[in-house]
């Protein structure tokens, strides 16, 4: 059973991502930071706002964690190290990650607060932007692998990584991945500067701890998805397969976190305009080019 190793790897990855995020956003490297702030959150009282929609308020963070865990269930960390090897794995990753949006809308509506609600519905708009390119890019990846199974996708990149075979798709997918886990240039639902935390503003105590854990797990899951789809998964010389998966996933997560520092936050309408006028045409072009390359020079 590869259930336990995968979950442990996810938790370790989430911890490292939390350390990295702290390092990137504050400039100080504190390896024990997440543990300390986690303990502080658990000791804090978890307030429930007045007139909440109680079901949504409680279920939102849990659904966020669940959707990230479900998506990670089909991502292989090594040959055979995958919880379920679905035949439609590449599509299932996307299907599970759509529920990130549902979770954010729920936890935005739940506390009956203006900023939280604005944040939740902003993420819905963000999803309308990034979800089409993400499916199209995955379609191009599946075209090369001639399969939707994630293990087959990794096997198809043994000779040449997808990041080099279809660089346009890689760039679009990286941007979509950052939008998916609402990292800085696309952090519209939380937007510390203008929405005072948005969706997370009304959460305190252990509920906030669950929410932060879910976010860190989500970042790791999405980075692992980028690794599987574009960076050749577990393939690599010298090191054992699991180490390659770990190194690539962490590198992608660090890259996503660091890239956000140098870009200003995108406004909602600009975000939608960019995704629909640039992202979708690029993703379609990617499918077209990959199709031609597959027919002429082969995978």
């Amino acid at each position: 059973m590869s259930f336990l190793p995968v979950v442990l790897a996810l938790l370790a990855g989430a911890y490292l991502v939390a350390v990295l995020e702290g390092w990137v956003s504050t400039g100080r490297f504190r390896p024990a930071g997440p543990i300390l702030s986690g303990l502080a959150l658990l000791g804090q009282e978890s307030l429930v706002p007045r007139t909440p929609d109680r079901i949504f308020f409680e279920a939102g963070p849990v659904l966020l964690l669940t959707s990230a865990l479900l998506a990670s269930a089909v991502l292989p960390l090594g040959p055979g190290v995958v919880i379920v090897d679905l035949a439609t794995g590449a599509l299932f990753v996307n299907a599970a990650l759509v529920y990130v949006m549902v979770a954010l809308v729920m936890s935005g509506w739940g506390p009956d607060a203006a900023y939280a609600m604005v944040g939740g519905f902003r993420f819905l708009g963000q999803l309308v932007g990034y979800s089409m390119p993400i499916v199209m890019v995955i379609a191009a990846v599946a075209m090369r692998a001639e399969s939707l199974a994630t293990t087959e996708v990794v096997e198809s990149q043994a000779a040449l990584w997808n990041a080099l075979y279809q660089p346009v798709g890689f760039v679009v997918f990286m941007a979509a991945a950052m939008a998916l886990c609402f990292l800085p240039p696309f952090d519209l639902p939380t937007a510390p500067g203008e929405l005072a935390g948005g969706v997370v503003a009304e959460y305190t105590g252990w509920r906030l701890a669950v929410l932060r854990l879910a976010r860190a797990v989500l970042v790791v899951t999405v980075a692992a998805a980028v690794t599987v789809f574009f960076l050749g998964g577990w393939h690599g010389p010298v090191l054992p397969p699991w180490a390659w998966s770990a190194v690539k996933t962490l590198a992608v997560a660090a890259g996503m976190l660091a890239a956000g520092r140098y870009v200003p936050r995108v406004r909602e309408e600009h975000l939608l305009a960019w995704w629909w006028k640039l992202g979708i045409p690029l993703a379609l072009l990617n499918i077209f080019v990959v199709g031609i390359m597959l027919v002429t020079v082969g995978g």
């Binding site: 299907a95 819905l124 999803l127």
Partner: peptide
């Protein structure tokens, strides 16, 4: 029907969430 199931789970989430915003 694995493909249809995953497709249904993926499509309906977006569709119904958009419905929620129109209701509001």
């Amino acid at each position: 029907a694995e493909f249809l199931g995953v497709l249904q789970i993926m499509m309906m989430a977006t569709e119904m969430a958009i419905m929620a915003i129109f209701m509001v």
